[in-house]
């Protein structure tokens, strides 16, 4: 089960997802999207839902409860954003043990690292090129790991351990403020 909670806009990468959809559906996955926005993009995924009634659901509109239930149910969480200054939903996904599959941009690149089953490091899957094939390649890697429950549980453990609390952020701000203060008094 791959979850998505997003706005239906090109910034969020749903345009390359639409192009990659047939390839993804060949990977034996289910995709649940909670998203609304651009009507033309919504229509593409509504039509896909008719083609793949057992494999995908698009729910439009804002539904906070459903957003939580999708996080809790998902094995993987997809964010193929074109750009993403910080992004918070990938942090929630990690907390809920849903391995993020993200484009390596902005805050996504800073919070998600590629899982390596040999070294048992990493908490998700990344792709760099803003291309449908790069997206489906990352999903395929995730699905391959998912087929090995022991490896998958290592990955999920890494997700749970990822800490992006406000306490951590505040510590970084204070460290930076102190550095600026030292530089200023040094002048």
């Amino acid at each position: 089960m791959i979850g998505m909670v997003t706005r239906m806009t090109p910034q969020k990468g749903v345009d390359i997802l639409a192009e990659a959809l047939d390839t993804l559906m060949a990977l034996d996955i289910q995709l649940v999207m909670l998203a609304s926005g651009d009507p033309a993009l919504e229509k593409i995924f509504q039509q896909a839902q008719e083609r793949y009634p057992d494999r995908m659901r698009l729910i439009t509109g804002f539904d906070n409860s459903l957003a939580h239930r999708i996080m809790a149910a998902s094995n993987m969480f997809l964010m193929p954003s074109r750009f993403e200054p910080c992004g918070l939903t990938q942090m929630y996904a990690l907390r809920y043990g849903a391995a993020p599959i993200v484009r390596a941009t902005g805050g996504l690149r800073d919070t998600v690292s590629e899982f390596n089953p040999r070294t048992r490091t990493g908490n998700g899957f990344l792709f760099s090129e803003y291309e449908p094939t790069a997206l489906s390649g990352a999903v395929a890697r995730a699905v391959e790991i998912f087929r090995h429950p022991a490896k998958w549980q290592v990955l999920v453990g890494n997700c749970f351990r990822s800490d992006y609390s406000w306490d951590r952020a505040a510590g970084q701000y204070l460290q930076w403020f102190e550095r600026l203060r030292e530089e200023r008094t040094a002048v």
Binding site: R69, M71, Y92, G97, D110, T111, Y164
Partner: peptide, 26 residues
């Protein structure tokens, strides 16, 4: 510089989440 925002773990924590069918934890 760049500093990540924090996540609101009071709202988003599967061990305490009342919106999900059953709570869970690592």
């Amino acid at each position: 510089t760049g500093i990540l925002n924090g996540a609101d773990y009071d709202e988003w924590d599967p061990a305490r989440d009342r919106l999900i069918p059953k709570p869970y934890s690592p």
